[in-house]
Design a binder for these strands. Structure first.
Length: 395
RNA sequence: GGGUAGGUUGAGCAGGUGGUGAGCUCCGCUGACUGUAGAUCAGCCGUCUUCGACUGUGGGGGUUCGAUUCCCUCCCUGCCCA
């Protein structure tokens, strides 16, 4: 009936146990598990808030914990440029530097190959790029990106890759994907720390054959986890789902955690969990919060809108966050108009709390064995996927 | 009372020496944001029947084919002097 009894994945730096495997009827690939890393355990499916510059923007570490985060992402590229990975290492490593004692995953910096596209040149050995801070010239190779992450001391390092936009021509995607594979092997070969896990990244764009080839290639390497990259760009939800439906079945018997990079709207998280994803990260909830919009069951509120100025209600009645416990919509609307710094903190606390609570609800549903059946309810709580889709009424 | 500088679309301005003033920045309104060069960006922001049209340069009058511009007069504001 069920797939083979799950065998925990164990390495020197990571342990992953699927405690609730997908149902035998294949109604969903969703699963629940526990990822254990040097600085603590992570219940999956789980969302990682992003702290690019060794801080989740606008929040203190206590705020991030209060929101329910058990692991965060930090960025190799940014910390290398400023304040410098060697300085962080001298100061006792990233955890001590930012006073975050739970797990940290560092992105490899590969994403900047795309996001800072004007400033880089890719060759077989690595990427030469200009600093977005001062225009100075720098170079990342798989070996260098790995060394930087070892200096930072994150729980999870990520192999240096070359993401591409899904809309790129097939030969561009094929070329970048093949290079990502060679860089994956080099990243692994360069990796020394036994107290740091390393995840590899699948690319392949939206082409099913390339995505499948990349999945097989990355999966046969001895990584501690599998990232799925290149799906947080300009593709449609249907294209993204299709890419996941190519990759995940090929990993069905793989004991390692699966991490979909860069997705963060509640609706996207739900659909991806359904397709078998264990880990996520995204800037979205924090950025959207800083720009004035708050996620609530069934949709989102734009606190800069006039309608909130006289509203004494909480943003969300049953939310335990700092904002909802103590302040009104009217107050937050005022803070945003006045551009007061507290607005950004309160809004970010809320959106991260909402996101992490949503993940907790998904986990609870999976553990209760009612997950596929709960999809409708969870979808209505997640609300719209994007601005072009109308929010469903909350149940 | 005398002198002087002004009065432009919510605010602040630019421009305009006789030849179509709706241009900018704020404020305001709405939307977007997905491995963070983002507390950011985009659209709108006089009226209407909105791919366009109309109105608008303090009020009134005059000169002129045509006035925001030149002339007269009045009102208002800042500053200086009495």
């Amino acid at each position: 009936m069920t797939a083979a009894a799950p065998v925990p994945f164990v390495s020197t730096a990571a342990r992953f146990e699927v405690s609730v495997p997908p149902p035998a009827d294949e109604s969903t690939r969703a699963r629940a598990g526990v990822l254990t890393l040097p600085h603590g355990t992570v219940d999956t499916p789980q969302f990682m808030p992003v702290g690019t510059n060794a801080t989740v923007k606008a929040l203190s570490p206590d705020d991030v914990k209060a929101a329910g985060a058990s692991i965060i992402l930090a960025n190799t590229y940014h910390l290398y440029l400023r304040p410098g990975h060697e300085r962080i290492e001298r100061l006792g490593g990233l955890h001590r530097f930012m006073d975050w004692d739970r797990p940290i995953l560092t992105d490899s910096g590969g994403f900047q190959v795309v996001s800072l596209g004007d400033l880089r040149v890719v060759d077989e050995d690595g990427v030469t790029f200009r600093s977005h801070l001062d225009g100075s010239i720098h170079r990342f190779t798989p070996e260098h990106a790995t060394a930087v992450q070892e200096a930072l001391g994150s729980d999870v390092a990520v192999a240096f890759d070359q993401p591409v936009y899904p809309s790129s021509p097939r030969e561009v995607v094929a070329d970048a994907t093949a290079r990502t594979h060679r860089w994956a092997e080099r990243s692994l070969a360069a990796h020394r720390r036994s107290d740091q896990a390393m995840f590899g990244i699948i690319q392949g764009g939206l082409d099913p054959a390339l995505r499948a080839e990349s999945t097989r290639f990355i999966a046969q390497l001895p990584f501690d986890g599998i990232c799925i990259g290149g799906l947080a760009g300009d593709e449609t939800p249907a294209q993204r789902d299709a890419a996941l439906d190519v990759a995940i079945p090929l990993l069905a018997d793989d004991p390692r955690p699966r991490y979909l990079m860069g997705l963060g709207s509640p609706a996207d998280l739900l659909e991806a969990v359904h397709r078998g994803i264990d880990l996520f990260d995204s800037v979205l909830p924090a950025r959207v919060a800083r720009n004035g919009q708050l996620w609530v069951p069934g949709g989102r509120l734009n606190l800069r809108n006039k309608v909130h100025l006289d509203d004494p209600a909480a943003v969300q009645d049953d939310c335990p966050c700092l904002l909802c416990r103590r302040f009104s919509r009217a107050y937050l609307a005022h803070l945003f108009r006045a551009r007061e710094l507290l607005a950004y903190r309160l809004a970010t606390c809320h959106n991260l709390t909402f996101t992490l609570d949503f993940m907790a609800r998904i986990r609870a549903s999976i553990r209760a064995g009612t997950f596929p059946a709960d999809m409708a309810l969870l979808r209505s709580r997640a609300g719209r996927v994007s601005g072009s889709e109308v929010a469903e009424a909350s149940a």
